[in-house]
């Protein structure tokens, strides 16, 4: 006998008892799929090849415009590489901090989304969907301009650097997406696990912590890693609000060089570094997805 409960992912699409297990499995899988699909990042080797071609075209184009007496395009790139990589490390630092903060708060928000208390549940739902559907850049601007540039407490004035505000701005959509990942994963666990735990006299908190959530972790890992790769790429947005990360530094390098033709080479070089970092994450995610899909 199936009964509609809060954690039923979809209404059963069939009334035939024989098909019910299959329908439940389909509904469960589609719920897990939804949680994953929202930020699927499909990086393929072909993308790397395309990037390389773009880079070579950029270099060739720039090389053709080199005036006598100017260093070659590759020498120029090489000269700027230490500066750009320092910027890239900054991108990675922002992504790591935003991911950590967003994940911690997002976990709480995700659990709040399945709370039995309607105000908590609805509040968490609203928060999640607001930050999940707001454009990242808008959130970034809000954080940059609504947060003070310094706080004064106990007679001390502590400045808040721009990059902290930017990181906070990026952690908001991360939080909302993690919240959805958590909710989706919890609801993708069959209700029979809840019943089974209840009949062994586990209370709700124990059931969630000892039985349901441990089973969620492997379902949550691939979408979470996907989210991280997307966040990493989104860190270049912070250049718009004046953070000196790789993108901002590239723009500064270009204006310092003041040469025509460098544009394509430099930006495809930036792209190349991001690809180098995100590609392994994307491949690993795909492998995890495949493995867990079989094991379920």
């Amino acid at each position: 006998m199936s009964r509609l409960r809060w954690n039923d992912p979809l209404p059963q699409a069939t009334d035939l008892p024989v098909l019910l297990p299959a329908a439940a499995r389909l509904a469960r899988n589609s719920a897990a799929q939804r949680a994953t699909d929202a930020f699927s990042l499909h990086l393929l080797p072909a993308h790397g090849v395309a990037l390389l071609v773009l880079f070579l075209i950029g270099c060739g184009w720039a090389e053709a415009q080199v005036q006598p007496g100017q260093p070659s395009i590759l020498a120029t790139l090489w000269k700027w590489t230490p500066v750009l990589l320092r910027g890239f490390l900054f991108n990675l630092a922002i992504s790591a901090v935003a991911m950590a903060a967003g994940t911690i708060v997002g976990l709480f928000l995700g659990f709040a989304q399945i709370s039995l208390l309607p105000p908590v549940r609805k509040g968490a739902w609203l928060t999640t969907h607001f930050f999940r559907n707001a454009p990242w850049l808008v959130l970034l601007f809000y954080c940059m301009f609504l947060l003070p540039f310094q706080v004064t407490a106990f007679g001390m004035t502590i400045p808040i650097p721009d990059w902290i505000k930017a990181t906070l701005g990026l952690s908001l959509p991360v939080m909302a997406n993690v919240s959805e990942i958590v909710r989706g994963a919890i609801q993708s666990i069959p209700t029979t696990q809840w019943e089974s735990a209840a009949s062994l006299a586990f209370n709700r908190r124990q059931t969630l912590w000892m039985i349901i959530f441990p089973q969620c972790i492997k379902r949550m890992l691939p979408p979470w890693m996907n989210l991280y790769a997307i966040l990493t790429m989104a860190t270049v947005l912070t250049s718009i609000v004046g953070v000196n990360e790789m993108m901002g530094l590239t723009r500064q390098a270009l204006s310092a060089e003041n040469r025509s033709g460098l544009l394509l080479a430099f930006y495809s070089y930036v792209l190349f570094w991001f690809f180098l970092y995100c590609y392994p994450i994307a491949r690993w995610t795909v492998r995890l997805e495949a493995r867990y899909a079989v094991n379920d």
Binding site: P21, E195, S196, A201, R204, Q215
Partner: peptide, 24 residues
């Protein structure tokens, strides 16, 4: 309350058609 039901369930066990073991 859950508390009351938990006290009952310590005395009454149910075993399901689909086993429902904890897979982890």
């Amino acid at each position: 309350t859950d508390q009351e039901k938990i006290a009952l369930r310590k005395e009454v066990s149910i075993i399901f058609q689909q086993y429902n073991l904890f897979p982890h």
